[in-house]
Design a protein around this nucleic acid. Structure first.
Lengths: 258, 258
DNA sequence: AGAACCTACTGGTCAGACCACTTTTTCCTG
DNA sequence: CAGGAAAAAGTGGTCTGACCAGTAGGTTCT
């Protein structure tokens, strides 16, 4: 594997494992290059990779910083790099939702038609977990619920396609929803849609399931559109299942250096 | 904004807008650097950003390629991963068709809704070419016709996804159909479906267009299923899409210079 | 024909030099 | 002494040109 990829991998692990806090400044390119004994060009390539992935953001003349994750406490004036991406291609997100609406609907349809008892058990489990949490405060159960449904469609192509679309939207939609100011009305709507979807699948009503699933995606999309018009900031949520391992990267971030 | 970001932005745009299809090779770093009049380092940084974002994949000594949203097997073989996928799991082909039925329908729906006069002109041209050939003897006009429709949907995500799905099936379905002993009845059905689809889009009837397009995909899929049960041999076609598409967006990939 | 080589691509890495921007320090002036 | 302007130092941004390392296609020798 290329050295730049090794570097970006090690840095990302270090950051996501909590070694570096959001907003914290990471060493300068020249320092990293010197400590890791590679050229500055390599460091820059690695950093650009992390930048593309939204893990860090860079400011000319100042340095690179760990991207803010879910700033629960403080103010977040600065643009999230992902929001930037989203604003860069707003039309694409719209297109994404348009397609996803269709595919989620189909997945729900097929799930209602094909779900085995095992599938139903999984969906039920995910649904229970979903009901115990606020859908606007944590995106994970929501994701799990929909994932279980898609898998119950027993169409691997659909599964992979949707997982691809979802990851493309993870940075925007999911994060947006989970960080949205919980408007009671919206929360209720989402909960209701989830329950309707759940019931439709459990009772093997494909048409109803499809309708509800599509409407759900459309609703979320519309909500996002509203937010956009209100200029709300979209912040990034979690991602990547990373093993928690001690820092073997060999990178010294000089917490107490000159 | 930094130049490298400009570059990555323009490239991503070009790719997402369908100018570059999944799996397609993008120009070499040295070529891009020369055409865009920037240093190779900048190009590399931009590419790394897209890499981090999952838009492209790079292979040492070979080049960079547009990543496909479609789950491509992996790095085992390189000749015809699609064929192997099909032969190994014939079921996957049906899954593919199942999803494509939905997406082609949506594309037709949107095309009937959004097609500009230019789009309609293109579709008409493709349709004329289609009528002049036997749809069972030459797959290219058929492909062109459907392609024109998909592009008229004005949804780059849809274009991207369908182009990926289509390329996965190109070696199987298309080849199968074009090598099938032309049963008169089937030929007539296909021609009729094409005409219905054409009319629906020209007359701006989204619902009808969607219905016909879905039915068309389903019909082809069913025909394929029949063939398989009859033990027909599926022969791989020779046509590899070297489609040169006009570059409509910014980046000059060759030829002339400002 | 087959195997070994050669060559012309491709990306990967390096070194050192500027430039542009930001922060800190210095130091001259009022 | 205070204030502010200039200089310095530190940062990312860009460029150049070179060399290394895989890959693919052709050539030559056997």
């Amino acid at each position: 594997m290329a050295i730049s990829q090794e570097i970006s991998y090690r840095l990302e692990r270090l950051i996501l494992d909590g070694g570096l806090a959001p907003g914290q400044k990471i060493p300068s390119e020249r320092q990293l290059a010197s400590r890791l004994r590679v050229s500055r060009a390599i460091i820059r390539e690695a950093l650009h990779e992390l930048q593309g992935r939204g893990v860090i953001e860079t400011r000319h003349g100042k340095g690179s910083f760990v991207a803010s994750l879910v700033p629960e406490t403080g103010e977040f004036e600065e643009q999230s790099p992902l929001m930037q991406l989203y604003e860069g291609h707003p039309r694409t997100l719209y297109d994404l939702l348009e397609v996803r609406e269709q595919l989620e609907g189909q997945a729900a349809f097929l799930a209602a038609q094909r779900a085995t008892s095992l599938d139903k058990h999984r969906i039920t489990k995910a649904f229970r977990a979903l009901e115990e949490t606020d859908p606007l405060s944590n995106a994970k159960p929501d994701h799990g619920f929909h994932q279980a449904i898609v898998e119950a469609s027993h169409n691997p192509v659909l599964v992979h396609l949707l997982s691809g679309l979802k990851s493309m939207m993870l940075l925007t939609v999911q994060a947006a929803v989970s960080n949205l100011n919980p408007r009671e009305e919206m929360r209720k709507t989402i909960v209701r849609q989830h329950r309707q979807l759940y019931d439709a699948i459990m009772n093997c009503k494909p048409a109803a399931a499809q309708k509800v699933a599509s409407a759900h995606v459309r609703f979320v999309g519309d909500a996002l559109k509203d937010m956009e018009q209100q200029g709300s900031k979209v912040i990034r949520a979690q991602l990547m299942p990373n093993g928690r391992k001690p820092d073997q990267s060999g990178i010294d971030f000089g917490r107490h250096s000159p």
